[in-house]
């Protein structure tokens, strides 16, 4: 480990030296902070409001009103946004690489079977075929699919059928290669 005297030198005011020595002691005591895994890179989605049941006599009225409201909102949403919309992502992972290549990976709510639907937006990569991989200890661990990139920006749906907690990053590699061109 670095020697504190090596950092502070000999010309420091005693009061400042004492202050920095105190910080040094705290840093040693605290130990290193953990690295955040990809699953914790962003704040979790705010939890849904707690459900408060209606009194029994209002339950049917409330359900009917909710059904009518849901139908109306769906109709409006369908007309305004079209039928192919997605919900909000629960996680967004930024990736970058050489020559200003970038990507944004949006993860949507995991389904009951453990699939994480994703949408990958890539820009700045040369046209070609690429693969998205999850990494563990800096090595390719599990593939999340192959996709093609054209010039400009490409958006592609993918899936990660894994427990993301057991991985520590994402990379994009040219198809058939193991050298990442985009990393988290």
């Amino acid at each position: 480990m670095t020697d504190l005297n090596d950092i502070l030198g000999a010309e420091l005011e005693p009061s400042e030296r004492e202050r920095l020595e105190h910080v040094h002691t705290l840093l040693v005591q605290a130990g290193p902070p953990p690295e955040l895994p990809p699953a914790l890179e962003h704040a979790p989605a705010p939890p849904a409001a707690r459900v408060v049941p209606f009194p029994r006599r209002y339950r049917f009225t409330a359900l009917a009103a909710a059904a009518v409201a849901a139908c109306a909102l769906f109709g409006i949403g369908y007309l305004v946004g079209g039928a192919g919309g997605r919900t909000e992502p629960v996680r967004t992972v930024a990736m970058s690489g050489a020559s200003q290549a970038t990507a944004q990976l949006d993860l949507f709510e995991v389904d009951a079977a453990g699939n994480w639907p994703m949408e990958l937006r890539v820009a700045g990569l040369p046209a070609g075929r690429y693969e998205l991989w999850l990494t563990r200890d800096g090595k390719l661990a599990e593939t999340c699919g192959v996709f093609a990139v054209a010039d400009g920006e490409t958006t592609v749906p993918l899936n990660a059928p894994y427990s993301l907690k057991s991985f520590d990053g994402w990379v994009v590699v040219p198809s058939g290669d193991t050298t990442p061109v985009l990393t988290t």
Binding site: P33, P34, E35, L36, L40, H42, A43, P46
Partner: peptide, 14 residues
């Protein structure tokens, strides 16, 4: 919320 998370996430996980 995101900003507060950025500031405290590693402390909480630690």
């Amino acid at each position: 919320f995101e900003e507060l998370y950025r500031r405290y996430a590693r402390s909480v996980l630690g």
